[in-house]
Write a protein that binds this DNA or RNA. Structure first.
Lengths: 343, 343
DNA sequence: AGCCATGATGTAAACCTTTACATGATCTAT
DNA sequence: ATAGATCATGTAAAGGTTTACATCATGGCT
């Protein structure tokens, strides 16, 4: 009986012997309804198992209570924890979350734009670092949006993330304090804003340490384990080696560590390595990886809080909210080895 | 101008000088519309930038073209690849995908039920291994659904996954072939069907090898790295040790390897270890992990294909589709050491 | 020429809500 | 007792689609 098709507000109204308007009010503005009627309605709801058809509701209201989270790569170990922060904050304000996955394919971004266009989501959280839409014109129709994890490259939407420059600075300062001067930066990128900021931190640190730009080694990378390993191979084809590798993220650092391990080197005995992000795996490496922690849950919470503010009509107070990164000292850094400096 | 609010079908109709019905037909059943009119309509669509309001459409049709994928843990390294298979298959049939995240919290499952109830998704792919709904009565209203990765515990929905029993059998057979007889099974679980099937494969293999049940060591676990490490600690408090650890999944195996490494043991010299899943990290471990590969993309593709069949009205032909697992031999297994057998 | 089949288009109802406005009842204050 | 305010409820429109049915024009057939 109840299994045929979901109960509608009319079913409830009939059973409660009131009009559908009253049912709607009993649900959304209970104070406008007499106690006795509210009781009847609630009973009828219980009997029918009624739940509001969110689709019809959103169509009528012109807005939904879902937030769309678009990410390029669900598998990114950072994603999961930021998501937790996002979810908790959203839930406590009556919003639900849906996740869209672009796989770095802009075409897929367009699908989600359609989704947004038909009001199926009230707001957008963007992990991709880039608005997924070709036409600038489409941006105009975007719902309130907040970028997270990766500053948004091509559009002026507010951003919540870690202070990449300061984080990188902490890493390079540690290496310098341990006595390193030949520090390679692995994972430079022109297209990824977060990475180029980390590069800025690196440069600032070496400036402060008095290491001239000519003595710095920079290798590009896209933040994957493979890219770390690859960069290392390139480096070993040169004649001078650094004493430390400052990697743009933990994945890159893992790639570097695997590469060094495969060549028989000891970390940190022969080379020091730092990462960035503090992904779960960083603890489990041997040696465990010294890195910079992103306050992921806090980032998620803060980004969603900002989005909810925007949704309630307030203008974005500032364009970027940067959270403080923490240096996590583990076992992959020590004083530089004499072994390769002498060459 | 176009930025104010999205164009509706009426805007298109006005510009093309036809009725809204014709516009709708031009879009969805172009063959029912004269060439000349279709042209006019298409132009009008181009001008307005119209895209159908999926919400209104679904409300009218009583079904959407979105598929909801509910997963307990986005971070699971298996999830990402299965998702790719799901997405590709869905896309090529005009469906989009949304991901819901329960974090193993049944309460959150209910939210997604509401989502489904209001036709915001046409079908459901379930990673959780359990229908997320308290009331059995609610099951009746579930849209076509397919379980994946983890057989569904409490409801008769079809399942697509790897043949766990056969996979586990391949692992245990390898260990037996290398000469192991004292093989511990790490990660037994009564609630997770996939794990208990792997246990069945383990038992079948040892039955075949003539190892009596009394000589088998079984430890429970929930498939996390922590659980592997924990189980190992328990094991070391006993007086007899196995020569090999057959782990219910790769994460558990990683935990066991970390634990053994911390105690100074060599793998595979002192102990052999096998995993299950072949997550990306398995390659990067030292030693690299011998494991059973899940054909993840194929599972995703196949599960979505089945769901789409269900959506088009056909009855589920069979209740389970099991794909063949492959043994991936790497470096974590060798012949048993004499060192601990003698005790 | 007249009839019918065919094909193209329009009209209007339906999907399920929310809410402005109207209605009617009850109460307060004169 | 009556006017007016307050409160509870109902009526109906609107939101953007799809589609059964109706209408109308065209062309082929006898």
């Amino acid at each position: 009986m109840s299994s045929s098709s979901p109960a509608t507000i009319e079913d409830v109204a009939r059973i409660a012997q009131v009009s559908i308007a009253t049912v709607s009010r009993a649900i959304h503005t209970p104070e406008k309804v007499a106690n006795s009627t509210r009781l009847k309605v609630n009973q009828a709801i219980a009997i029918t198992g009624y739940t509001t058809n969110a689709m019809a509701r959103s169509l009528r209201l012109g807005r939904s209570n879902m937030i769309l989270v678009v990410a390029p790569d669900i598998g990114d170990p950072n994603f999961s924890n930021i998501l937790v922060g996002l979810e908790n904050e959203a839930r406590s304000h009556g919003y639900g979350i849906l996740i869209g996955h672009t796989h770095n394919d802009p075409q897929r971004g367009l699908e989600y734009l359609k989704f947004l266009n038909s009001n199926q989501a009230a707001g957008l959280i963007l992990f991709t670092g880039i608005l997924p839409f070709g036409h600038q014109s489409m941006t105009a129709r975007l719902p309130p949006s907040v970028g997270v994890f990766e500053p948004v490259y091509n559009g002026g939407i507010p951003y919540v993330g870690v202070d990449d420059i300061e984080g990188a600075r902490k890493a390079v300062d540690l290496l310098v304090a341990e006595g390193h001067r030949k520090i390679a930066f692995i994972g430079d990128s022109r297209t990824r804003l977060a990475y180029s900021r980390r590069r800025q931190g690196y440069d600032a640190g070496l400036d402060a340490a008095g290491v001239p730009p000519g003595e710095r080694t920079i290798l590009e990378g896209d933040g994957t384990i493979e890219s770390g390993r690859l960069a290392l191979e390139q480096l070993f084809m040169r004649d001078t080696l650094p004493t430390a590798f400052m990697c743009v993220n933990d994945q890159t650092a893992i790639g570097v560590m695997i590469g060094l391990g495969a060549r028989g080197y000891d970390i940190p005995g022969d080379f020091s390595v730092t990462g960035f992000d503090d992904v779960p795996q960083a603890t489990f490496m041997t040696p465990s990886l010294t890195t910079i922690r992103q306050p992921r849950t806090a980032i998620g919470k803060s980004a969603m809080a900002l989005l909810l503010e925007l949704l309630s009509g307030s203008e974005p107070p500032e364009t970027e909210i940067l959270l403080r990164p923490d240096l996590i000292v583990r076992n992959s850094v020590t004083a530089p080895s004499r072994r390769f400096q002498k060459r």
